[in-house]
C-alpha cells in the first residue's frame, strides 16, 4: 500500500483535517421545486458515510450543493471549515460520478482520465510533472487497472469504468470523497474492491460520502448514515440511524416491504420472531428451511399500514 494519499499537496500549505458541515441547507430549482429543505448533518475525518434515500429524494441535489453546483437559498455548507469555493480551489474534494453522467465515446484513454485528477495541481500550461505521472501510475495500480491504461474509456466493462474514476479521485488526493452510486452496474469483485479501498482510505483519515439506494450493503461498510427524503431525516452512527423503524418512517410506501412471520416462518406458532425485508429494487426471493428448498411463501408485498 502506498502512503501517497497522506502527503500534503503543498508542504507550505498543510492539508486541513477533512470535515463536512451541512447546516440548514435549502435548495430550490428555478421551476419552484424545493428539492431539499433545511438539511443538516456533520461528518468528521476517518468516516465512510452512507447517503441513503430513494431516487428523487434529494441525494444528488445534496451532492450538488456540497460541490457548489447549486447555490442553496438558505443555509451553508462548510468543507474542512472553509466555504465550498475555497475548499474546491484547494483540491480537497474528489468526486466519483455515476456512469450515466459520463460520455463514454469521448476520445480519452484510461490514463488521460486519471491524469485529470491531477489537473488542479498543475501550473498554467497544465503540463504533468514527474510527480503527477507517478501518482497516476500508483493510482492505476491501486485499483488494478494498470494493464488497461491505453484503452479508450468506452472499451471497458462497467466495473472497470468505475475503477478508472476511483483512480482519478485517488490521484487527486482529495481527502473528502463524494461517490455517487458507486455500486450501480458493477460486478461483485469490483464492489468488494471498492469497499476494501474505502476502508483503507478511512484508515488514513479520509472522509467518504457514498450515495446509494442499495440498502443491503449499507451496514456492511458505512459507519455513519445520513437518511434523506427531501430533508435529512436522521444522521449519525449506522447502528443508531439505520434501524427498521427509521427506514420505515423514511421510506414507508416507497420501498417494497415484506414481512415473514408466524406459520410462514416457523412451525412453532408461538414464536413471534419476524423477518422484515425492505428493498428499493426488484422483489427479493427469500429462502427458508433446512436446505433452502422451499421459498418462504408470502412473496407478495404487504401493506404496512
Amino acid at each position: 500500500m502506498t502512503l501517497t494519499a497522506n502527503v500534503p499537496h503543498e508542504s507550505w500549505n498543510p492539508v486541513p483535517q477533512p470535515s463536512l458541515e451541512v447546516e440548514g441547507v435549502t435548495v430550490a430549482y428555478p421551476n419552484g421545486n424545493v428539492a431539499l429543505r433545511d438539511a443538516s448533518f456533520g461528518l468528521g475525518a476517518g468516516t465512510i458515510a452512507g447517503l441513503v434515500g430513494v431516487n428523487g429524494s434529494g441525494k444528488s441535489t445534496l451532492f450538488k450543493a456540497i460541490m457548489g453546483f447549486v447555490q442553496p437559498i438558505a443555509g451553508e455548507v462548510r468543507i474542512a471549515g472553509m466555504p465550498v469555493r475555497e475548499a474546491l480551489k484547494r483540491n480537497l474534494v474528489a468526486y466519483v460520478p455515476q456512469a450515466e453522467e459520463v460520455d463514454w465515446n469521448f476520445p480519452v484513454l484510461v490514463e488521460d482520465v486519471v491524469m485529470m485528477g491531477r489537473q488542479g495541481h498543475m501550473g498554467f500550461f497544465r503540463i504533468p510533472s514527474a510527480k503527477d505521472r507517478e501518482l497516476v501510475d500508483q493510482s492505476l495500480a491501486r485499483v488494478g487497472m494498470t494493464e488497461y491504461r491505453k484503452r479508450q474509456i468506452g472499451e471497458l466493462s462497467g466495473g472497470q469504468k468505475k475503477r478508472v474514476f476511483l483512480a482519478r479521485a485517488l490521484a487527486q488526493q482529495g481527502r473528502i470523497m463524494l461517490l455517487d452510486e458507486p455500486f450501480t452496474g458493477v460486478d461483485v469483485q469490483t464492489e468488494t474492491a471498492i469497499i476494501d479501498l474505502m476502508r483503507e482510505l478511512r484508515g488514513q483519515g479520509h472522509l467518504m460520502l457514498v450515495s446509494t439506494h442499495n440498502l443491503g450493503s449499507v451496514p456492511d461498510f458505512c459507519d455513519q448514515v445520513v437518511l434523506v427524503n427531501r430533508t435529512v431525516l436522521a444522521a449519525g452512527p449506522t447502528a443508531e440511524v439505520f434501524t427498521q423503524s427509521n427506514l420505515e418512517q423514511a421510506f414507508g410506501g416507497v420501498l417494497r416491504h415484506f414481512q415473514l412471520a408466524g406459520s410462514d416462518l416457523h412451525d412453532d406458532k408461538e414464536d413471534t420472531r419476524r423477518v422484515t425485508v425492505l428493498t428499493d429494487d426488484e422483489r427479493p426471493v427469500v429462502f427458508y428451511g433446512e436446505n433452502g428448498s422451499k421459498p418462504a411463501s408470502p412473496s407478495k408485498p404487504q401493506d404496512d399500514k
Binding site: 460541490m67 457548489g68 453546483f69 474546491l88 480551489k89 484547494r90 483540491n91 474534494v93 474528489a94 468526486y95 460520478p97 453522467e101 459520463v102 460520455d103 469521448f106 480519452v108 485529470m116 485528477g117 489537473q119 488542479g120 498554467f124 500550461f125 497544465r126 482519478r168 487527486q172 482529495g174 463524494l178
Partner: peptide
C-alpha cells in the same frame, strides 16, 4: 491550444472540473 486541457476537461466532466476548482 494553451488552455486545451481545461476546455477538454470542462467538456468531458464539468462536475469534476468544478470539483478541482477550475
Amino acid at each position: 491550444l494553451t488552455k486545451r486541457r481545461d476546455f477538454l476537461l470542462y467538456a468531458f466532466d464539468p462536475q469534476h472540473a468544478r470539483a478541482i476548482g477550475l
